[in-house]
Design a protein around this nucleic acid. Structure first.
Lengths: 140, 140
DNA sequence: AAGCCTATGTCAGAATACTGACATGCGCAC
DNA sequence: GTGCGCATGTCAGTATTCTGACATAGGCTT
């Protein structure tokens, strides 16, 4: 009798927790937290995005993103105008330093993800991605 | 051309974030946070567990668990001896109130998980569980 | 044009979880 | 038996993120 299998919700949390832990380990030498990396990564693919949209894409509040962007700005990793040309949104983007750093970070983070998926054949990876996307959509 | 598919790491984070959000919503009427629910849930299945082991099982530090248990103790949801019979570990368990509350919480949380998996056939659910477990193990 | 709604950015305060540190108690090697 | 290592619990301080609130800017309806 095996009725003690962990729920899928718990497995999702477990996977996220371990992934976060391993990412912290490899990002620490670069002086980056996981949140900061996520932010820079997103900025690389969406330069000029607003802080609020950036926050939503990495599952944070815009207030927290505000303080984080201030720190990244002090390290000259991102740029942000003091005033908006039109509207309230301040378009944020990477500096050259920020771009270089996020590329270095991507290399080590890709290593972690590769390690996580090492035992999964390609077909299983696709199925996992589709299943997770379905879960996300169902909780919309 | 579609080369912008999100990584599995991002999907894991997205699923966990949305799941947490929906759990917060349904647990709020019970005056429970997700962390508190996780703690009570684990205590239901492992009465007498130590706070440190409890913390590990819900991916927190033992320090944070200490403060959380203090709060739960003040609400008479858990019991904890002031001194250990042997060793340092203080065996923690649910009170009758705690047991009743966690069962009510399980009902609403199960609803959220059911909603998350609504679109997935049974075979896909098994595959998802196995894939997630493999990811967790690979990051051990 | 005026009013309403929404989104963005920011300030202030609170909650939550973390790291570092230390004492205590057990088990194990020696 | 003694010393060492390891786990647990707790205190103190820090960091991160959150909620609540407000002002500003644009779109949309009327």
């Amino acid at each position: 009798m095996r009725t003690d299998e962990p729920s899928i919700g718990y497995l999702v949390k477990a996977a996220q927790a371990r992934l976060n832990l391993r990412m912290e380990e490899v990002l620490a030498p670069l002086e980056l937290t996981v949140s900061q990396y996520s932010c820079l990564f997103r900025l690389k693919h969406d330069p000029g995005i607003s802080a609020a949209a950036l926050a939503r894409s990495v599952f944070m509040t815009r207030q927290s993103m505000g303080t984080m962007l201030q720190q990244l700005r002090e390290r000259d990793l991102v740029t942000r105008p003091d005033r908006a040309e039109s509207g309230r949104a301040l378009p944020t983007a990477l500096t050259a330093d920020g771009h270089a750093l996020v590329e270095a970070a991507e290399a080590v983070v890709d290593g972690v993800e590769a390690r996580m998926l090492a035992e999964l054949p390609g077909a299983d990876r696709s199925a996992l991605a589709r299943a997770l996307a379905a879960c996300v959509a169902a909780l919309e």
